[in-house]
Amino acid sequence: MNVFRFLGDLSHLVAIVILLLKIWKTRSCSGISGRSQILFAIVFTTRYLDLFSNFISVYNTSMKIVYITCSYATVYLIYGKFKATYDFNHDTFRIEFLLVPSAILAFLVNHDFSPLEILWTFSIYLESVAILPQLFLVSKTGEAETITSHYLFALGSYRLLYLLNWLWRYFSQGFYDLIALLSGILQTVLYCDFFYLYISKVLKGKKLSLPA
């Protein structure tokens, strides 16, 4: 494992923990898209089914379990415990527009036409667009709390760091995976606008608000 891959995992973990803590400490999930969180729970569930079929390392297994557990905990906090604070009115992105194309594409373009591989591929495609409901929510309300911006920044950085990891692996091991690579590029591109706002506003101590 190279440093980019490790930092990517770390950044992903930080994002997930920031979100859980934000909801827990403020007793509120306002400004958070429950729909994106449902998509992430689906992503982790379909990708990590290999937990039952093959063991890779203690690190690999524990990270997978932590990601899955945290994502379900987040969904529970939003739709269960702190439901009263959930922004139903603004969180209106139609997730079937992401789920259906990802599923169709996974059936058409995959490495191997087997259930586990198709689900893995589906999770890669779905993850690349799973943040859209959250970005849609931010654009609809026109602002994001600073802590939510930190969450989005850590989550966006994770795939960017993975891209560097894949670049590294290509040159050092000749390894590349086009499905993950192209999806990773799309995923990172979706954050570009946000990255710009984050660097130009949030890092200078201002709240993230969109120009009217």
Partner: peptide
């Protein structure tokens, strides 16, 4: 091998 490599990533 490639499949194993891919499943090693998170």
């Amino acid at each position: 091998k490639d499949q194993e490599d891919r499943h090693d990533e998170l």
